[in-house]
Design a protein around this nucleic acid. Sequence first.
DNA 1: ATCAATGCAAATAATTTGCAAAAAG
DNA 2: CTTTTTGCAAATTATTTGCATTGAT
Lengths: 160, 160
Amino acid sequence: MATDGPLCPKRKFLDFLGGRGLRLTAQRRVIVDVVFSTDQHFTAEQLLDWSRRRDRSVSRATVYRTLPLLTASGLVREMDFGKDCKVYDPNYASHPNHSHIICQDCEKIVEFESEKIARLENEISLQLGFSVAGQRLQIMGSCEALKKEGTCKNRGGLER
Amino acid sequence: MATDGPLCPKRKFLDFLGGRGLRLTAQRRVIVDVVFSTDQHFTAEQLLDWSRRRDRSVSRATVYRTLPLLTASGLVREMDFGKDCKVYDPNYASHPNHSHIICQDCEKIVEFESEKIARLENEISLQLGFSVAGQRLQIMGSCEALKKEGTCKNRGGLER
DNA sequence: ATCAATGCAAATAATTTGCAAAAAG
DNA sequence: CTTTTTGCAAATTATTTGCATTGAT
């Protein structure tokens, strides 16, 4: 995961802040570092926990106040997997249109992108009189490979 | 909407209750009547409101206790449209695999089904080592037809 | 009779907010 | 300096639950 360079998500977010006249505080720096140093999904509580390990001064309120900034920037997306709390996905900078397959057994989540599905979505939407702004696709299923082999050989399979 | 006959969703739900040794109370009858006498999406609070109009004895607790039964029966699905509370969709009896297009401007929701997308989902899932159990697709967009004409001529367009 | 289901009100859990103090630009 | 941001603790909101009572079978 690129953590440097002008186009890394972290840098993009700092630009987003600057462009809106928002300030770069120590706490925001920590939160952003944490968010973009992983490709894992996370909850608000996890983000608080991870951030506090780096800097005890990060409060729950600040985490909750920073999350809307992250989603507004388009670099992180709020997800609902039917759990009691929201889950955030930091992979929208690299794959702005990706979908999820969720294993009902092991809860593992695999991300993928499908140009073909995107085309169909556009086509159908057009016929219904809509222009597409975004999309959200979750497939629920069983990870049979995982059950058979103890591990899913397709892990990390991004791109389609 | 069919409210009678052996295969109507209401009847299916009553069978579901019976099959599990659950009892048919006056309150459940009202709630179920309300749910399956519309094809509109609703929130828990709306369902309480509508039910209370028919029978003041329906309490919030009973609504909240009945909703999981409705979703467990497979006839109603819990949805998340990024709002503060959950939304329920009573159209899963007639269209068990439908998707949603949501207009970002007028918040109108159109349901559709696509066999082609379903096929692609299966194909992709298989390649990633998953067997598909279910699917959840939301397309966010702008209902331009609505803006131009004051009404969406494609309203109710189910099936694709 | 028996056991599930109810209403009520209190309890939870996630998230939000008011406010005075601290820090960024 | 000015204005944003922070932490704290209290508030809010949707949903859940304990309990004594009611009602279905």
